[in-house]
Amino acid sequence: MQQSKRWAWLKSWEALMFIILCAVVVANLRLSEHYLDLNNLANIFHLSIEKSLVVLIMAFVIINGEIDLSVASVMGLSATVLAERYDAGWPIAAGFVLALFVGVVCGLLNGLFAAYMGIPSLIVTLAGSIGYRGVARILLEDRSVGDFPSWFTSLGQDGIIGPFHITIFVFIALFILGFVILQYSVFGRYVYAIGNNRAAAEYAGINAKQVKVTIFMASGLIAALAGAFYAARLGNVRANAAEGFELDIITIVLLGGVSIFGGTGTMIGVGLSLLVVLNLRNGMSLSNVDGNTQTSVIGLLLILSVLVPNLIQILQRLVPRLFTAISRILNKGGATEPKSQVSVHQ
């Protein structure tokens, strides 16, 4: 009994992700001698730091039983607002604050329609993803705005400790914050309870609508922050900034063991899956694999990660049945000993 408890964690999703991560890291080490360069290690994170940030809040959204397809558009819109205001002569800090505010408003709209109007969030945020991107197009049309002040672009381009940018430390801080809130705070427990069974949570006195709106607003805020970082890293902004990022983000969250139906998943699992995806992409880039093929490998990993445990479950049910069937056939041959067992079944 004790032994089975001691090894129970091995069956968990986090363990599976950890094993895959080890495999990916070993494969990368063998593939390229540049993998362990400090610059490459920093690059693994820098190139997808915006997605990584949004992954954190997307975990909350999906565990809560909703989905937010509009994050990429909010990222694009926030970058666009920032750039457009800078172009109009505002100081960049003011544009940054306005961009964050716009993100929160987008999240609020999503939340109001999804939680209070009762429209499935898949539809609300689908409309949002088209609409917010549309607003970005209205603002910038087909222009490209750049030439940001150097202190702003250095946020996303220059290291502060070694080659590591400040954005990585923001990510680590937010990861720890997200971990504590999700696993150890009352609010985090509410998120799980609502995701598990909304009706039951409401009977228990949890204000599900309020929690959902809060999470959508936080999602808008983080997406806007990520959009601003994106502008800082690239140094110029077009209206199609961050297009298509939502799929990568959702894939990482689901790969982290979060159920699309809500209620299960942990921050550690999401963190591990983020490391798996980033390292996998880095390894493939180091061996010159095309970007679309990289995405399809991650898609395959996503499907397999859910399919394999399901198949094992099905096999676990089928194998004993197969055994009884075989023993029955054998018994018909005249064996007497297990006959009592068969009669029990009948």
Binding site: T251, I260, D290, N292, T295, S296, V297, V306, L307, I314
Partner: peptide, 23 residues
Amino acid sequence: YGRIPAIVVTLGTMAIYRGVLVE
């Protein structure tokens, strides 16, 4: 038969089919 939510499967195959096309 694999009992995977449709959104997960088709999110994955969307990337896979596009990757097959690129290859």
